[in-house]
Design a protein around this nucleic acid. Sequence first.
DNA 1: CGGAATATTATGTGCAGACATATATAAATC
DNA 2: GATTTATATATGTCTGCACATAATATTCCG
Lengths: 233, 233
Amino acid sequence: MTGPAIRSWQAVQDEVRRRIARRVWKPGDYIPHEAELAREFGCARATVNRALRELAEEGLLDRRRKAGTRVALNPVRRARIDIQVIREEIEAKGAAFRHAVLVRELRAPPPDIRDRMGTGAGQAMLHLRTLYTADGAPYVHEDRWVNPEAVPAVLDETFSDISPNEWLVREVPFEGGDFTFSAMTSTPAEASVLSCAVGEGLFVLDRTTWSAGGVITSVRLVFHPGYRMQTEM
Amino acid sequence: MTGPAIRSWQAVQDEVRRRIARRVWKPGDYIPHEAELAREFGCARATVNRALRELAEEGLLDRRRKAGTRVALNPVRRARIDIQVIREEIEAKGAAFRHAVLVRELRAPPPDIRDRMGTGAGQAMLHLRTLYTADGAPYVHEDRWVNPEAVPAVLDETFSDISPNEWLVREVPFEGGDFTFSAMTSTPAEASVLSCAVGEGLFVLDRTTWSAGGVITSVRLVFHPGYRMQTEM
DNA sequence: CGGAATATTATGTGCAGACATATATAAATC
DNA sequence: GATTTATATATGTCTGCACATAATATTCCG
């Protein structure tokens, strides 16, 4: 290789991607080490490092100290999903957003929610059920439990002007969360809220959010039939 | 701040996270610029840069040249999903993996598949329908179309020893793809393949994969009832 | 006053060198 | 031969510096 120098980390990354795609470096192969690639490309090792590090994060390369870098055997495809505020998601589609709080009560959650939130048996939580609509059509039904110990201000909020979803995102600093995607069969209750047929397949997103102060909220979003969630690329 | 120096990018990141979580820096606020943070933390600007860059990629910060860095107003939560080879997913659960090719035919795909793959009307594709089982129980039903122009070798493969899923991951270098998650209501056909009730909600993953040589494959995975897909954290 | 040219500034990136850390391999010891 | 210890090496990270780039703020000029 005595072509033009490849000096930017982007260019290095592209070149490495190209070599993997064209099978110059095959799955399982060790590729030259950073110093050698830097020499070949005519750039600094730090530049090669940044390019390779990101490819490893993507799952295309396996790297280990001393052992070296090799092309992943079974490249794990890593999909990235951006989950934004529901209002913005709906408005981005050019539809009119509205929300209506259907249930607002303070009581102890059922065992499965307690389990997910890891809270005590007798502990009361604020339970909210909210319907979000796009141009008047049911879009998603939110069933949420909020821990008043972690978020005392939630008890004073009526959620008439701002939705629980947006209020929490704005007001509560959260540090982590986990998501679960699944499908459910619409029960008569869900069907009536989402105005769909009983027995339809619905897309479901469960999320539990916490911060240093403990579990903040656990929420289930049941989307209208036909909802699709796409990866950002 | 005259505490101990924060010299690693991880430590800087943690400190920034902490300040955002504790509302030292509120959503919308501009935070000090890199050089000043570097001075405060007692580290190099490059270290601060790496910490902040990753936080911006996560969606927690908004950064713009000259304008500066500020805490995101509506932090987009970015979920990452690792999609691995089905065999590994099943074996990771300690179950026995098997696959059975139900359909293998060469023909022109229906319009919706043509549309997604962006191929010509008369162009024949290899159509494969495969059932993957875990401990003998139906796990996921795969409906796949493979472009023989991009992958000629696919026509010689019977997929008796290796599944289409794994064969393609191993043999075909792919460069990009997009994923769509959704839910469907099981039809009689799906119900019979997956041995579930008609009208049950099923989790669906659609994926189209391509490389420089064009579209490689388009696949729909319909999972057994109760399947859950979780984010990696 | 309004628009264009210019200066300023924060982030983005590259480089050379240094040291840290994990770890595969070889050597030494029991 | 098995276990422990040493060493070599590739990646991981930090530093201080430089220049590039984008975008805002300012100045200049018609």
